[in-house]
């Protein structure tokens, strides 16, 4: 039992180290010596590395951690392992915002802000629904799904009346393409992501109880005000990730699921580990997307789907047998 635990932590640590190494060296990951040479002698390379590469890694990290933490929280709140960061219809609202921004001729920054606005709009709608019906009613999930449908119709409508060039740009956003992410937004947004994750960490015992179901939640004295706070923090966290990098699927679903199986169902550990794993996972996916189809870039959202999906199926099959 103890030996198992040791092996588990050693594996986790080595995966972590390899990931960090891979993300930093990127294309040069097979030739570390060449990478060090470039860093020492090539000023342009060094500039590109510090001004573009590093911010991009941090952007990916921030988005991934926000999605993983909010996914963890939504799975607990809705007591549904299929819930994720987007269950509240946040992605639908964001997609609509992005499409609208590009249709009205806005640039990448206004796309970010429109996306943020759209996602906040859906958060507010679902927030009031859960306030009226309680988080324990299926109405919340249904409302999130219905809201996504409504927004996706609205997106289709915008596409139908706009130029194909703009449609392509919007599509890239919806696939979670970090190459058009706005790095200047990173510092303030990242700070907010850390603060909100920290607040949710304080609520970890609440979340432990909430995931036991309605009976325990009511009788152990969790107030509906704290449930609303938790919901709101998690939803805003998702919106912040949209603001940084568009819509990136699967992280909010997969990371919490795996961490719960591998480490612990206690939310203090779950949230902490998900924060780091989600961040590193997205950074790895983004880097892999850059390398895989050089000189093109595969959007990070495409890579999370590929890598995450395959790994997820593998681990599910392995557990069953």
């Amino acid at each position: 039992m103890k030996k198992n635990k040791l092996i588990k932590y050693l594996t986790a640590a080595s995966v972590l180290l390899v990931s960090v190494y891979f993300v930093i060296t990127s294309v040069n990951f097979l030739q570390p010596a060449a990478f060090i040479d470039l860093m020492n002698y090539d000023i342009t390379f060094k500039n590109v590395f510090f001004n573009f590469r590093i911010p991009r890694i941090w952007t990916a990290f921030a988005i991934g951690s926000a999605l993983a933490v909010s996914g963890t929280v939504f799975q607990a709140l809705l007591r549904n392992p299929l819930a994720d960061s987007y269950t509240t219809g946040v992605s639908g609202g964001a997609a609509f915002g992005i499409s609208l921004a590009l249709f009205t001729g806005g640039g990448s920054l206004s796309a970010s802000l429109y996306a943020f606005g759209g996602s906040i709009l859906s958060v507010v709608i679902v927030y009031f629904i859960q306030k009226k019906f309680s988080i324990f009613s299926n109405v919340v999930i249904l409302a999130g799904v219905a809201l996504s449908m409504i927004f996706s119709s609205a997106v289709m409508f915008v596409y139908a009346v706009s130029e194909s060039r703009e449609v392509h740009k919007a599509m890239l956003w919806l696939m979670g393409d970090l190459s058009i992410a706005r790095y200047e937004l990173l510092p303030p947004v990242f700070i907010f992501i850390i603060i909100l994750s920290g607040v949710l960490l304080l609520y970890s015992k609440h979340l432990d109880i909430i995931s036991l179901g309605k009976e325990y939640t009511v009788t152990l004295g969790i107030s509906s005000a704290s449930i609303r706070n938790i919901f709101f923090c998690a939803a805003v966290l998702t919106s912040l990730s949209v603001l940084l990098g568009g819509i990136i699927g699967f992280i909010g679903l997969m990371i919490p699921h795996l961490i719960r199986k591998i480490f612990s169902p206690k939310h203090f550990i779950l949230i902490t580990v998900s924060f780091f794993c989600g961040g590193i996972f997205l950074a790895v996916c983004d880097t892999a997307g850059k390398i895989a189809a050089d000189p093109f870039e595969l959007p990070a959202g495409v890579m999370t789907g590929f890598i995450g999906g395959l790994f997820f199926i593998y681990s599910a099959i392995r557990r069953k047998s």
Binding site: R79, D208, S211, L212, G213, E215, Y216, V218, T219, L220, G221, I222, S223, S224, R260, P265, K266
Partner: peptide, 21 residues
């Protein structure tokens, strides 16, 4: 809710699957 939880405790018959605590 806090006061209530300190005054009575409940044992419900739970049918749903609980987390792996």
């Amino acid at each position: 809710p806090g006061e209530r939880s300190r005054l009575i405790s409940f044992v419900f018959s739970i049918n749903s699957k609980l987390p792996d605590y």
